[in-house]
Amino acid sequence: MNPFRILGDLSHLASILVLIFNIKSTNTIEGISIKTQVLYVLVFLTRYLDLFSFRLVSFYNTIMKLFFISSSIYVVVLLQRSKTTQAVAYKTMLLTDTFKVQYILLGTLIAAFVINHKFTFVEIAWSFSVWLESVAILPQLFMLSKSGKSKSLTVHYIFALGLYRTLYIPNWIWRYHTEGVIDKIALAAGIIQTLVYSDFFYLYYKKVIKRSALNLP
């Protein structure tokens, strides 16, 4: 594995750990979009269908796939549980989490049927997963822009998550040069995903990085 791939995977892992740590330690779900989290469950369940073929690529690969599936479900369970434990916060979340996900689902489903490697269930599911992932953060970004203020941990979560797919782009270029392989669907969706994050990255740079630089003695 090349450094971009490792760093990408680590930042993906870090993003989820930051999110779970955030919910667990502060005991609040403020600022988190349940819609985005449900979309990620769908992304991982449709992406990792190859797990059922039991032709395992590597130990690392299998563990990571199982982690992404289980942790995404766990986050949704945590958010659902807050319905009773943090009734007010849960209601506030639903009121601000108003992005129309049906358009995302319909658009990515059409994209999967039109753009795929083979017209089979597994291939269409994989393609759907890749296109869906590229836009799954939109409800979360929409919520963030509506509320204006945000908890810094939520912001770090979004940053780490955006960084992961951005790092996959140099990884794909690296693999194209060293192994001669490239997946055009993943590359195109990866570029879209990075563009979706670009505005957020800019704000993150302006607010988080510049501010911390100013705080230096």
Binding site: V57, N61, M64, H117, D183
Partner: peptide, 10 residues
């Protein structure tokens, strides 16, 4: 080959 790439990445 594209198939390999897809299952070996996350």
């Amino acid at each position: 080959l594209a198939h390999n790439l897809k299952h070996d990445e996350l």
